[in-house]
Design a protein around this nucleic acid. Sequence first.
DNA 1: CTGAAAGCGCTTACAG
DNA 2: CTGAAAGCGCTTACAG
Lengths: 329, 329
Amino acid sequence: MTHSKLRDVAERSGVSISTASRALNNRADVSPATRARVLRAAEELGYVPSSLAKGLWSGSTKTVGVVVTTISNPFYANVVTGIESVLDREAYNIVLNSSHEDPMRELRAVRLLLEQRVDGIILAPVASEPTAVEYLEKNKVPYVLVGRRARNVEVDHVVCDDYSIGALAAEHLIKRGHKRILFINSSQNYSAQLRQEGFCQTLLEAGIDQGPEWVRPVRIGQRVEEVLGAVLDEGLNPTAIFCFCDQMAIDAMRELKRRGVRIPDDIAVMGVDNLSVGEMLDPPLTTIDVQNSQMGIGSAQILLRKMQQHDGYSEQINLVPRLVERAST
Amino acid sequence: MTHSKLRDVAERSGVSISTASRALNNRADVSPATRARVLRAAEELGYVPSSLAKGLWSGSTKTVGVVVTTISNPFYANVVTGIESVLDREAYNIVLNSSHEDPMRELRAVRLLLEQRVDGIILAPVASEPTAVEYLEKNKVPYVLVGRRARNVEVDHVVCDDYSIGALAAEHLIKRGHKRILFINSSQNYSAQLRQEGFCQTLLEAGIDQGPEWVRPVRIGQRVEEVLGAVLDEGLNPTAIFCFCDQMAIDAMRELKRRGVRIPDDIAVMGVDNLSVGEMLDPPLTTIDVQNSQMGIGSAQILLRKMQQHDGYSEQINLVPRLVERAST
DNA sequence: CTGAAAGCGCTTACAG
DNA sequence: CTGAAAGCGCTTACAG
């Protein structure tokens, strides 16, 4: 795996390395004949310049790091697709990492990206204490949070208002007449906490005072099916389930079906994200639209500006959630 | 965005750059006192070593390029997750690129990855002429194909037998009594051609001789909904639809529902990939399991061996497809 | 228009 | 145990 290098191209075309470099980079001050000779030599050798060496010199790798919890959740797949669509035009490559909701893996991912000298980072933070964020801040790399905000820190982000998401869900389920509502939440991250606050507060205001056993986080390594199964087995008897995201709602539906529970007649289910598959499910899934693809696009655009204008460009986007009522509730 | 460098660490700890390097890399021949001083200086400065500079020296970037058509198809999201799970343990980072079924973008992606000097590449090839593959071959980078094989070329891969997939689908639909079967295929790639051969050949052997208008490729920029809509409008009247993948089958179902066509009573639908959401759809989707996640894991394992053993390690895995009958057919 | 030289941030023989 | 030097593959002033 030894690539031919600039020196090889120079030798083959009988010029110096400097001239070869200039010819290859389309600089004005090279004679047409020389340029042609160099280009042909490069072609013949199958020369592929090393952006490692270039980057060492220029300080840019034309590379952006993206850290999400897992790409197998279509929500993040869509976010990444949005990011890609923006970055592609500027010829940036994406280095992808998954935290799997584990703060340690998140930190390690950020560290690896920094070592690789990515030009910027887009992060969907896990930890509620902003450890990864602090680390980024300290290293003064341009970065943007996506999908989740960091607690207590004024960092650039593109998120959907989490408190409202929780409130919207509670409101909707109350309106449907539910009084025993289980919240299957994500764990650790700040968005999860905000959604929980919005959810519980709205319930309280409607006179529904549920104990803490009605909010169940799904911890690292746990499956939604187990968590829900345990709840059902201990006889909590919810009439509705609100899930942190559609992906989790789908898993919940799977467990309910397995047990012969009818949706929504016995138990209603709703999620968040408005995945496109939601309307095709049986029954179609009630959800909350969070402008999924706008998150990816927006975060990439902000990051681009931050990387290009070194004067401390800053922008935060807070998207408004919207209830999508379907037959599962 | 100026990171502190080894020289800064050296100066702060009062040693030479060489010694600082050795201390940081845990070499044996450094006195404990010196090592401690260097480590503390690095800590205080928040020193993050540049893998660019390291890579330039060592020839390895601890980075693997992955090119799929699009990460928003859960099939590829799962493949990438599988790859990640293997590579993560070896501290390799993944550089992700999408071809969007466009041979030009595929070639550009490979080129960019080569410039970045990734240590290896995993590719789901688009083009049926193996241009990207030829390019890879010429550059002698370790690489593995995933999900799709290249025509006429003996390159390492992890795929599911495409001819059998087409045959299995045809067989199943024939058994269900269908005689007018539409194949909504992908375009360009070799797997699509093989599936088509298996599909058409099996139909022929069963005495069903459909014209070429019964196979419809979805070209770049086209949506399944349009293609299917056009077919329905021109009055081809299929009683069953076989789609290249589940994702496309879901889109087809969406269009059918929009038109009030009942599935499977009016038209049956089946896909390929066995996405986990398939069983939750309305109706549950008949599909063909292709050992999705094994593809990612297997391709990453093969690539690891190729990168580590420079003696031309080679391996091909051909997975066996399996019909998953559900209510959509 | 072209080439020799210095340098991007590291690592590793080679002396001491 | 430690440091000066060379080099990884490039680019860009600086001379000519």
